[in-house]
Design a binder for these strands. Structure first.
Lengths: 301, 301
DNA sequence: TTATCTAATTTGTCCTAGACAAACAGAACA
DNA sequence: TGTTCTGTTTGTCTAGGACAAATTAGATAA
């Protein structure tokens, strides 16, 4: 493992920082300081890539790059998150149980986690399971990832296993066909699917007809899918990690290309601070999602 | 829908063509021809974005951009795929049944598809189901997508439902613990997970201990995960859609940062034409994967 | 002291235009 | 028919400049 090197494209892939940003940081802040290969192209040593990944994580947690880059490495690893301060409010109840579940993931005990979750599902029923177990657990994992107490691969394992549980639960429900036809998906660059699965579970419980298209649909394809499926509602999910600044523009762009008769709903952690947008319904939580559904039914009978 | 416009970043997201490529094509070929907004920045009309998406699809199917861009739009829509010529060989048997399954997707009948697949699973058993149903079906969908007879959203629906089936089948297996500990994942930019799920199903059937980390793990994180989980094998999947040229470099880079005691296996449609690589085992198919597993056991008892 | 508005700063994204290497196609050759 | 060589195609990298949106800091008013 003697100092493997990454070119700028590989660093972009691995860190999520665009080439433009990597070059700009080098120009402005003097970091990173890649070597040059025989063609004069940047060649990033692995430790610098690690540091960039750490910086990116702290940025996603609300820190600013200028400060971070000036901070020495040791200090970086101990920095706390800035954004999610008011998070731990209604988590007094059941906190210990959630911690136990997370501990299973941290011990790399995927099987144990799955079994414990299935028990909870059986005990709580799907709706409560989604709202009281999956949702807070997901948020907790996000926070833990931000403050560094969760490794990336632990988060991946959690995500993969949780997706399985949800999908399994959903497919055990008979496909509803009373309610609106709801097309569930996300925009390109938004790959978090757990939010979509949670809301699908709730909608399916209510008997709505869900069309799960997975994540990362190009906007124009969402519009075509909505036409082809005669969807009554297009529901998009934005995670907290999604670049907030892009959301309003994306939604309005999609609203423009979407059939007029299809409603556009947006939910997830990313849209909570969003203002009102014309022709778009912002879902601020699970209750809001369910009441949107019942409202739709009231207006379409 | 009066000519909505996309900036270059949105086009990159929606088409998968990098900003560099978009600018270069404009310089070289005179297409696309975006307008400019008040800041002098490119503004792509929706029809051009559609055309770019079509071109990208045909490129993934083996065509060359120079030709495609010179081709008029009407002709583009009728172009056949170039790459997958020898595909339809051993598909004589059961072709009609597979066509029926695909027809369900095309009719947007997700529920019917799921039921039909569950029946097949029960009839064939998991191993045959993976090899004789899921695998050819997935290949067929890929081909159909390439030659334009499948819409993107139909492919998404198929993918989402098939993932559910596989995950459900896998989680019904008791977690094995005899065989090697196999860490299953993919590199960043490789988001196709069905191949991973198929091989996980086979390995789990053989009693191996699978650690599914989902897709898109940064290389350095794969290495950390392998250490933390004490993985005996890291198995990566590359779909046919993954840029072939990047694969050898990626694998060697990963091999460098991976613990020496962990084996590195690479499978999927993307690695079939790959030459031999030092310290990396290329899996050319399901049989090859299973024999790799038994070989490993032979060498580690 | 708190609130609000303005100015300065930070930061990401976009721009042009040039260079080069890897991949590919086709021709000449064995 | 197969192989090597050469020219073309194509993607990715480089440099540094510009600017707008977001954020912070400072100043003024309540």
């Amino acid at each position: 493992m003697n100092t493997p090197c990454f070119n700028i494209g590989a660093v972009e892939r691995d860190t999520g920082l665009s080439k433009d940003v990597l070059r700009m940081w080098e120009r402005r802040y003097g970091f990173p300081t890649p070597d040059r290969d025989s063609n004069g192209e940047r060649s990033y040593p692995a430790p610098q890539v690690e540091r960039l990944r750490l910086i990116k994580r702290l940025m996603d947690a609300g820190h600013r790059p200028g400060k971070l880059i000036a901070t020495p490495m040791e200090e970086l690893t101990t920095l706390a998150p800035r954004r999610s301060v008011q998070a731990t409010t209604n988590e007094t109840a059941g906190t210990d149980e959630l911690n136990e579940l997370l501990a299973l993931i941290k011990q790399n005990d995927g099987t144990g986690y799955q079994q414990a979750m299935l028990q909870r599902l059986a005990r709580q029923g799907l709706q409560r399971f989604v709202q009281d177990t999956i949702a807070p657990l997901t948020r907790r994992v996000g926070e833990a990832w931000e403050d560094g107490s969760f490794e990336v691969f632990e988060e991946h394992l959690f995500t993969e296993l949780t997706k399985r549980l949800l999908r399994q639960a959903i497919s055990s429900l008979a496909g509803g066909n009373q309610g609106p036809r709801v097309l569930l998906t996300s925009v390109p660059d938004e790959q978090h699917v757990i939010g979509l699965l949670m809301v699908e579970a709730l909608f399916a419980l209510e008997g709505a007809e869900c069309i799960p298209l997975g994540t990362q649909m190009p906007l124009l394809e969402i519009a075509r899918a909505a036409s082809a499926h005669k969807a009554d509602v297009v529901a998009l999910s934005f995670s907290v990690a999604f670049p907030q600044r892009q959301i309003p523009g994306l939604l309005q762009q999609l609203r423009q290309v979407l059939p007029a008769e299809a409603e556009l709903w947006a939910g997830g952690g990313g849209v909570q601070r969003l203002g009102k947008l014309d022709g778009i319904l912002v879902l601020t939580g699970f209750d809001s999602a369910i009441s949107a559904l019942t409202n739709w039914r009231k207006n379409h009978q």
